[in-house]
Nucleic acid binder design. Structure first.
Lengths: 354, 354
DNA sequence: CTCGGTTGGGCAACCGTTTTCTTAACCGCC
DNA sequence: GGCGGTTAAGAAAACGGTTGCCCAACCGAG
């Protein structure tokens, strides 16, 4: 209770330890040479006063703030959050604090935040968010390093970290092939959405390599459960003999599952179903639980943070960095074919069903 | 391209405008008295150099940092996010930046963040997150104001902002009564969860005031779709003549809808269904779309931020502040009774179906 | 004993801004 | 024309650290 109201300054520490401020500073930061005894005395004094260096003062002459800004371009959504958390975790371990800036898809707001961050002398900036396309760079030339996470910059020289969505689609198809499926349909989001394009292309390419094609052209629509239901209905109406549906998102897949269930098709016995995003609340509540692709957004955020820390420390890694997706197998693609041993070996291996 | 690497300082501005630093400072901050012409000259110079005051330097002698810390107790989840966004929005409008701290339900981590925030001299702290119960205060006595948002502190003197969940349950029941339902069941989350308790009690109390009771004791389980499916099955097996189910969450309600659909019960013709949280992705994808209660978490976050700003400016508002829930009516509770005009007037009015 | 080398620790400048105090100039009035 | 009162603007002292530089003391060697 006798604690002083005003937090202790380094001169309090210095006078308690009987040294000058300069010496106290060196003692606490492990700089300069001094008798071990002196150093210990200063450290004890700091401890007793529960001294913690004033960040503003330190910033003022080192130039470093040990803060970074995190700007989302769209409003912070389901995809940005894990990225942010991963980044925050990694940065926090590096003693850095994170400024949260919700851009809300408003360029004015975004530029305002940028100015604010710069006047706060952040050591670096992470830009994240989801967009239909790569986004233009946040500014032409900045005095601090910038890393784009999940979203990517249109400037190939900018450092971006993005999931390998084509590779994810490849894993999906390989998994379906490995479990004996051959007549595969693809239902996904809007045609102008980059993710939808990449995933569809990745799926088609992988099938082509196996000498197969989709049973029908990719069905583009919305990222919604409703579209999944509608598309599944269309698929049934078309009368194709489909034995698997690869969906561009878990929500779409869930819609598909719902319609198929009503139509009396059993999953996975009659059809295998696979989603994308591995959004637990969707994938697990789906009937049956949904095999999906996990983009490991938290790991992606962590990776972005690490790249930013490196850049801050003078080791920039410009360019586009991709990270693999992980296939998470659940009941919706359980193997029900009678001759599992005839499935092509290499495909099983590359599916990495762990 | 000719831009200087080092950002402009106030002395750059001063010399460009031909005045002293002190005068420049006054001109830019609207302090002191000076010729309008001089002020304008300084402002123009600042503009030309795109000068932005160094936050650290300003902090150093005003003591104010114009930053606040936001700590989540649990890991940042679906509930914390809107709260955070609302708070961030309100604080940003007040020129304050927000430090993001993900506590991950780890007390050590939380205390570490607290120390960090204090050494950064934040002007205030917002604590948010979801818990089964009120949480103990984050620290005994802090040099800065703290506001708890969504979660509340066990110390009644602490400033907390929470949704009026009992009032929400009341609105749900009143809406069901107003639409002619009388035989109402309640399926909700874990019995030890404060929200489950409060919502169940609110529902029971409201029914009691109308001289009614739940058709069965509240069914406590989990906050999951699976539990909703199971509970609905139990309800059907019990053979009660239920005409409405009020659920403790949208996920549970969705599970209920699913089981009822399979069992051939029509919603809303045979049963009305109402959820809680108004989680769009659940409420809208449900078949049929789900009437639900919206806690207006973003508004709650905004309110918490405003209270914090007031407290920072010397006008604290200790104690627990509640905010109303809003009923969002969708198809799952559409009126299908044959004599709508006989529904009791006051109940309709208080249901506020906007 | 003297001298050069080493080392512990103090002094003071500096980071960029705000703010108080002071001074110089200018005003109108008697 | 001198004088008090007002006002514009400058000088300088903080704010709390860090760091380069310098000095004194102490060491061992010749």
């Amino acid at each position: 209770m006798g604690k002083p109201e005003r937090p202790a300054t380094i001169s309090d520490v210095a006078s308690l330890a009987g040294v000058s401020v300069g010496t106290a500073s060196k003692a606490l930061n492990g700089r300069g040479s001094m008798r071990p005894d002196t150093r210990r005395r200063v450290q004890e004094a700091a401890q007793r006063l529960s001294f913690h260096a004033n960040a503003a003062a330190r910033t003022l002459n080192t130039g470093r703030t040990y803060t970074v800004g995190m700007i989302t371009t769209d409003s912070i959504g389901r995809f940005s959050i894990p990225v942010m958390l991963g980044a925050e975790d990694s940065l926090g371990a590096g003693q850095m604090s994170v400024f949260l800036c919700d851009g809300r898809d408003d360029p004015i707001r975004e530029q305002y935040y940028l100015k604010t961050l710069l006047s706060r002398n952040v050591d670096g900036i992470i830009v994240t968010g989801r967009r239909t396309q790569a986004r233009p760079p946040i500014a032409a030339a900045l005095p601090v390093p910038v890393v784009y996470a999940f979203i990517s910059s249109t400037d190939p020289e900018d450092c971006s970290v993005v999931p390998d969505e084509a590779g994810g689609a490849r894993k999906a198809i390989e998994h379906l092939l490995a479990t004996g499926r051959r007549r595969i349909a693809h239902i996904t989001g809007p045609e102008h959405h980059h993710s939808a394009q990449v995933r569809a292309t990745g799926a088609a390419d992988t099938l082509a390599e196996a000498g197969l094609t989709l049973v029908a052209p990719p069905m583009f629509g919305e990222w919604s459960e409703l579209w999944g239901r509608q598309a599944a209905g269309m698929l049934l109406a078309m009368g194709h003999d489909v034995d698997a549906v690869f969906c561009g998102s878990d929500q779409i897949a869930r819609g598909v599952a719902s319609t198929l269930g009503v139509a009396g098709r059993r999953i996975p016995e009659d059809l295998a179903l696979i989603g994308f995003d591995n959004w637990d609340v969707m994938a697990l509540a789906c009937q049956p639980p949904l095999t999906s692709l996990d983009m490991d957004l938290e790991g992606l955020g962590r990776a972005a943070a690490d790249l930013l820390l490196d850049a801050i420390n003078g080791r920039p890694s410009p360019g586009r960095h991709t990270r693999p997706c992980r296939l998470v197998v659940r009941e919706s693609t359980a193997i029900v074919v009678s001759q599992p041993s005839t499935a092509p070996g290499p495909l099983i291996a590359s599916a990495r069903p762990e």
